[in-house]
Design a protein around this nucleic acid. Sequence first.
DNA 1: TATATGTGCAACTATTTGGTTTCGCAAATT
DNA 2: AATTTGCGAAACCAAATAGTTGCACATATA
Lengths: 106, 106
Amino acid sequence: MRRDIFQAIADPTRRAIITLIALQAMTPNAIAENFNTTRQSVSKHLRILTECELVKPEQQGREIYYSLEIEKMKEIDKWLNQFRKIWETRFNQLDNVLSTIKKQKK
Amino acid sequence: MRRDIFQAIADPTRRAIITLIALQAMTPNAIAENFNTTRQSVSKHLRILTECELVKPEQQGREIYYSLEIEKMKEIDKWLNQFRKIWETRFNQLDNVLSTIKKQKK
DNA sequence: TATATGTGCAACTATTTGGTTTCGCAAATT
DNA sequence: AATTTGCGAAACCAAATAGTTGCACATATA
């Protein structure tokens, strides 16, 4: 049962849930109302999101509010970093190509 | 058969492949040698990566070199942008919370 | 106390997925 | 021309997954 963030965000419904609760915590019922799905289905997704600590439940009376652990999202950003370096140097390479073309035209 | 980037990077082997070929194109056999898996398995992963245009094949004689489409990786970055705004303003909100607590204590 | 509401969890089903095996094709090597 | 090598595709299997249904439990409300 490997539960990592990348697997968590693979599902479009889960990505939608994440976006939905990013700004304010919501209950499973409230979340389900925003999609064409049942509360139980949302509940399952929330469980997966909770397991990999992307989401945090908070009991309030008989309701449970789920909020996004924004810090955890940074892990994806961190993984992207290795490629960000490449994007940036890719620009320089593009510069080289452009100047080479310029030279050839002469 | 929806193939999107998020589903593509959900698999740890595929993430490893992406990292591996990020700097230089490689053949399926060469990639497979880096993991505990068969060429056919890698081939399947490459197919998925190709389908969602994260990877580009280039035939060279009887070999096929696969390289990363770094531009496509930016789409993940783009999706993260909506949360980046939050984790930046979160600092300000933290300030607000702290001052609210201060008030209540009075 | 009786009832309604919000929730998680377990069981079940249909679908998807990762991996293996086998095959056929095309390019290289002998 | 015969053989080896690199490859993708199809068939198959075991495991995982998304969604549904039904249930039990706790908190609210009458």
